[in-house]
Design a protein around this nucleic acid. Structure first.
Length: 490
RNA sequence: GGUCGGUUGGCCGAGCGGUUAGGCACUGGUCUGCAAAACCAGCUACAGCGGUUCAAAUCCGCUACCGACCUCCA
């Protein structure tokens, strides 16, 4: 596929922009990954899937993409006011484990779920705890440039001073004066000059178990810093795309911009992309609200709102059926609808491989392909892309049923359309291993042969018995011209 | 309270001034020994009230309701 014009909605400018890489064919992309102190949930899946599709698209188009997605294993404070306990440390205390054991458990859990969702591994997956030295260096740079101050072993970013020469709020649309007015009274802010200032380094209390030496104190880095240091380390001071969930827009990403500007005078990224939230009963699904559904629960059907287990591919398809910038409302019935829709799509793809070409086509495959390219190029409009793919399925089924015809060239294009868009870019495929089995396939052929023979002899008692028993084993049989086929669902 | 966004048919969800989005569900038909799958047809909605326009779900205004961020979160 030649490279089409791609437009991206840039949060920084609040409009769709033509995507022009800084150093083509290279593309640098940084996405905020999870804080590994709990099981991954549907929200994590959405962010990961959205940016996985972007990664796949750009790669497919021939860009050399370096995709960096971090693991936050230190630095997120538990409470507001930059006070209190580190999330990881708190969880470790609750579970009586070493903090790094917590990190290992939930990093593994995250990786396992992401693999099941068919998410490609990022090029680099750096950890905050592995970049303490870089973070200390960046704090020093910010101090040297006069945009931070030290109080009792802690270092804070001076937002008010920064805003005098820069624009704090350019990403999120905040106005500093309003922020200063609207800030609530919070405890533990005595050290800060202003409520909007944020910690770059915090001195650790004696009981704090995750801490590192620094020029200011034995402590730990502030929670916005890791992304700034790791993105610049691996992608440079100014790179193409920075992504993450919309809930990170403020203050996290706003602070990242401030830190980069204060340290090296650059905005970190050209395009800022934010995926919207998944809602449940119209409310954001989040850890703080406690209304989230973990991926494990989804895959096993063990949540009270679920009537059944859902395949990872169904979850992926469910998420891609909505545009990434809109909220997506979760429900059991919506998942069920997605499950059936995906099955229809995947069946169509398999069927297309078996079609027999005719001399001419009754449908315009080129036009359909153009529509697919247009959809994915237009701010990654996966729902419109999927609707076009369903049109391709309709054509496929019609050709198979003998109601339409397709030329050899168009048939080839149809199959590559499915391969490129569904499999390669959207990353959708059957979860079950559909590879042939050298024992089962001949056995099934034998069974279906017997069934077909009994049908031919009008021995329907036998043929129905075979179908009923197979059905109880979750094997669905389909009688077709010149034979029969079967599918298995676990 | 401030800032921003949303309200689409039974459900999910596209839409960015003029064309059937799509999926699921439902109804009728074709096919089938009966099924399954598939195909065809039907159901054709845009919170309310005004305005702009030859034309508005789409632009503007007001009203109502919902949500996000402002504190950790994808």
């Amino acid at each position: 596929m030649s490279i089409p014009d791609i437009t991206i909605y840039n949060t920084l400018t609040r409009k769709k922009e033509l995507f022009e890489p800084l150093n083509p064919p290279h593309v640098g992309m940084y996405v905020c990954g999870p804080t590994v102190y709990g099981d991954p949930h549907l929200g994590h899946a959405r962010a990961a899937i959205v940016f996985d599709v972007l990664f796949r698209l750009l790669t497919h188009l021939g860009y050399k993409v370096r995709y960096v997605r971090n693991i936050t294993d230190v630095g997120h404070l538990e409470n507001d006011a930059d006070e209190g306990e580190d999330k990881i440390a708190k969880k470790a205390r609750l579970e009586q484990l070493e903090p790094m054991e917590i990190v290992q458990i939930y990093t593994d859990s995250y990786h396992k779920s992401m693999d099941m969702l068919n998410i490609r591994h990022p090029s680099i997956e750096p950890r905050a705890s592995g970049h303490i030295i870089e973070q200390i260096k960046m704090i020093q740079d910010i101090l040297d440039n006069g945009f931070a101050y030290e109080v009792s072993g802690s270092v804070y970013f001076d937002v008010v001073k920064y805003n005098a020469s820069n624009n704090y709020g350019k990403l999120s649309g905040r106005v500093l004066d309003e922020l200063l007015e609207n800030t609530r009274d919070l405890t533990g802010q005595e050290e800060k000059n202003n409520s909007v200032d944020f910690a770059l380094w915090k001195k650790a209390q004696p009981e704090h178990i995750m801490k590192w030496p620094s020029p200011w104190s034995t402590g730990f880095p502030g929670w916005h810093l890791e992304c700034s240091t790791m993105s610049s380390k691996y992608l440079g001071d100014y790179f193409d795309i920075h992504g993450g969930g919309m809930d990170l827009l403020f203050p996290h990403h706003e602070c990242e911009i401030a830190q980069s500007q204060a340290a090296n005078g650059n905005d970190p990224a050209k395009y800022w992309i934010h995926n919207n939230m998944i809602t449940i009963d119209g409310q954001k699904m989040s850890k703080s609200l406690g209304n989230f559904i973990t991926l494990e629960e989804l895959f096993t059907g063990s949540h009270k709102l679920l009537t059944q287990a859902f395949d990872p591919s169904t979850v992926r398809f469910f998420i891609l059926q909505a545009h990434y910038r809109g909220t997506l409302d979760f429900s059991d019935s919506a998942l069920q609808a997605a499950e059936k829709g995906l099955k229809k799509l995947l069946n169509g793809i398999e069927l297309a491989k078996k079609l027999i070409a005719a001399d001419a086509s009754t449908s315009d495959i080129s036009k359909l392909k153009a529509a697919c390219i247009k959809a994915i190029s237009d701010d990654f409009n996966t729902p419109v892309l999927i609707s076009n793919l369903f049109e391709a399925v309709r054509i496929t089924n019609s050709v198979y049923a003998g109601e339409e015809k397709i030329s050899p060239d168009d048939l080839k294009m149809l199959n590559s359309l499915f391969a490129d868009f569904t499999t390669e870019i959207l990353g959708l495929s059957n979860d079950q291993n559909q590879q042939g089995d050298e024992l089962i396939d001949p056995l099934m052929n034998l069974i279906l042969d017997i069934r077909q023979a009994s049908r031919a002899n009008k021995d329907f008692a036998t043929s129905d018995k075979i179908r009923d028993v197979l059905s109880k084993l979750n094997i669905t049989t389909k009688d077709e011209d010149g034979g029969a086929s079967w599918t298995y669902e676990s």
